[in-house]
């Protein structure tokens, strides 16, 4: 019973952090401002910029190998409530990393969680889905429809 609640909480946090990290920094800031809150927080770590090594797999699914690096920014904050929030995202947007860590900490409160979900996560998911749909449709328009020319009389 407890274990399943823990898993649910963890899954929700994981999904939230993933959505936030994938978001456009400007869009995230805009949505955050719409939320109309500005909690006091202490920076425990960062925001700091670093690298992660990126891995692929040989042949697409074989043994892993390192094929390059990417810039990332990470941050850890502590709210007055004592809640600690973390973030890691691709790129060098310090403000975004700090914002995600704050949201991660805030969302540990159930009431704030649903507020963040409605005000930030769902709009972000929607715009991501819209962008993906546009790309998919643009790509689909370049799909080759083969046809066969029948020659001669049979």
């Amino acid at each position: 019973m407890d274990a399943t609640t823990d898993t649910k909480v963890r899954d929700a946090r994981q999904a939230r952090l993933s959505t936030l990290a994938s978001a456009d920094g400007a869009e995230l800031l805009h949505l955050w401002e719409g939320l109309g809150i500005d909690p006091a927080c202490e920076m425990v770590r960062g925001p700091e910029i670093g690298l992660i090594a990126l891995r692929g797999r040989i042949g697409g699914g074989g043994a892993p190998f390192n094929f390059g690096e990417a810039t990332v920014t990470r941050a850890t904050v502590r709210l007055e409530s004592g809640a600690v929030g973390h973030s890691v995202a691709l790129g060098r947007d310090r403000r975004k990393a700090k914002l995600i860590a704050i949201l991660d900490a805030l969302a540990q409160d159930a009431e704030m969680e649903s507020k963040i979900d409605a005000g930030i996560i769902r709009p972000l998911l929607k715009s991501q889905a819209d962008r993906d749909a546009l790309r998919r449709e643009e790509t689909a328009a370049t799909k080759v429809d083969f046809f066969t020319m029948v020659r001669g009389e049979d």
């Binding site: 700091e48 670093g50 090594a53 990126l54 891995r55 692929g56 699914g61 390192n66 990417a70």
Partner: peptide, 18 residues
Amino acid sequence: LPRFGYSQPIDTGSMQIE
């Protein structure tokens, strides 16, 4: 820059194809 870690291997099978 400091190195923070290694990513999980990317899954090109679930690529958003362009």
